[in-house]
Amino acid sequence: MTKTDPAVDLAPLTESVVTGLPPEQVRDDRRKNAFRKPVSSLIRHAILIAAALLMLYPVIWMVVSSVRPNDVIFREPGIIFDSFEISNYVDGWNALSYPFNTYLLNSALVVLGSIVGNLVSCSMAAYAFARLDFTGKRFWFAIMLLSIMLPIHVIIVPQYVLFSQLGWVNTFLPLIVPKLLATDAFFIFLMVQFIRGIPRELDEAARIDGAGHPRIFLQIILPLMVPALATVTIFTFIWTWNDFFSQLIYLTKPALYTVPLALNAFQDAQSATDFGEMFAMSVVSLIPIFLIFLFGQRFLIKGIATTGIK
């Protein structure tokens, strides 16, 4: 094993952590590593590229299949671009009751509402759990965790009855309103953990300056937990974008169908499925999440270390 194998030796790990140090020290490191670095980073790139290819094989297979004629997909396995059938994209886009952009837009609406809801309501609840001292805190925290331990399949029927009484079936409300009310308690817990990592001295200093809790929350805590907020955004986006079951149950009008429901409409185990078109539209539906991640990660890695709080 070479010294640079990341699976075995921790040296590169510590190195990469430490290279995140303030600029003057990084410069210091560069000088020290002037000789070792090119070789080491070449090997690391090689390993990472190999790992990335392995990780991406199924994704590549899907992209290749999306430009193959339907009858070839399963008869000829492998991932060689042997044909380029753009028609899967054109036909797939128009294969269902509405053009595919309708479903993309519907999903975007649900996702947007969910993200706003989760960011606002969960961060508020997290602040209370992490920073405030109140009666029955441990009890409520336990309740919060318990609320995410029941599988959705037994919750959905009573919940459907409830929303159906409110006349909310066939609207996006049952999908968005719960998020505005912080029912995705995972995110509260996540943000509690992050807030607890922020030194209390900062709050104290603000308090001495006369700031109340709303100001401490908005002006101290929120800016410092941008990575956590980015994480919540990315996760909410993906979970909502991929969520099939609750969208299936609550949305019955094709005009309101979201991407997972639309993709599902391509297939039926009892009859033929147009896989070429389904894969093509799967690729289309992956693009927004991929872009969100690509650009979102900028905020993800923008932590205290880089915002210069000392």
Binding site: A95, L96, S97, P254, A265, F266, Q267, D268, S271, A272, T273, D274, E277
Partner: peptide, 9 residues
């Protein structure tokens, strides 16, 4: 009803 995209159309 249940079915695939052909049937829906």
């Amino acid at each position: 009803w249940w079915g695939n995209d052909t049937r829906h159309a």
